[in-house]
């Protein structure tokens, strides 16, 4: 089933999808920031930009979201056999500190809400890696009624690691790909999200039925 067919399940009419405050109770609106994200461009000076990209690529704090079964392949990465700390990658428990968001497998509609909230709490620049075939096209959940088929309809994804499940070696290959993109300055997912905010929000609201969170929750 295509994600777009899910729109009929939304309790909110299409024209209200983008109206701010449509989903928050009046007394809760003052508690949250309702500003939309602004794109922040990298430095214009090439040497500064390259240096920042180098630092970003060589020190990556990972927020690993074990949404599905694929997350089990992330554990060996921190053990003696694979040891990703030698690439300057460390697991962090909070979205605030992290710069790489790993979606560990299929994302159900219910999980998508948490993914959006976590993603929006991360600071610019931030990168996303989809782990497993389910994040690419639904994988073995392609006909599930409550599983998201394409992750990049909802948050910008920098790299996918296909496989069901991908081995830790494939994940390391994915990390190298992400590092290369960062070094080249091509991993600008946070700015892309800010520029296409309406499009992403519309997609998210089509599938998330109980949207009891602010417009943009950083």
């Amino acid at each position: 089933m295509d994600d777009r067919k899910m729109k009929h399940r939304s309790p909110v009419p299409e024209e209200e999808l983008l109206s701010p405050d449509a989903f928050l109770a009046p007394e809760e609106r003052g508690l949250f920031c309702q500003d939309r994200p602004e794109p922040v461009e990298p430095s214009k000076v090439k040497i500064v930009r390259d240096f920042c990209n180098w630092a970003q690529a060589n020190s990556i704090f990972i927020l690993a979201f074990g949404t599905g079964c694929g997350a089990i392949e992330m554990r060996p990465l921190f053990t003696a056999r694979y040891d990703i700390s030698r690439y300057g990658m460390f697991p962090r428990p909070t979205p605030r500190m992290s710069s790489l968001f790993i979606i560990g497998g299929y994302a159900s509609v219910k999980t998508m809400k948490r993914i959006v909230r976590s993603y929006e709490q991360m600071q610019n620049p931030k990168f996303v890696m989809g782990l497993g075939s389910c994040t690419v096209n639904g994988g073995m959940y392609y006909d599930s009624y409550n599983t998201v088929k394409r992750l990049d309809h909802y948050i910008p994804v920098d790299a996918y690691v296909a496989g069901c499940m991908p081995r830790p070696e494939s994940l390391i290959a994915g990390f190298r790909r992400i590092k290369k993109l960062i070094m080249e300055g091509k991993a600008e997912g946070a700015n892309e999200y800010a520029k296409n905010f309406e499009w992403y929000k519309r997609n998210q609201r089509r599938i998330i039925k109980d949207w009891n969170m602010p417009e943009y929750n950083w």
Partner: peptide
Amino acid sequence: INLFKLLSMR
């Protein structure tokens, strides 16, 4: 590198 990276967050 961690320090430079934290400083380079936008």
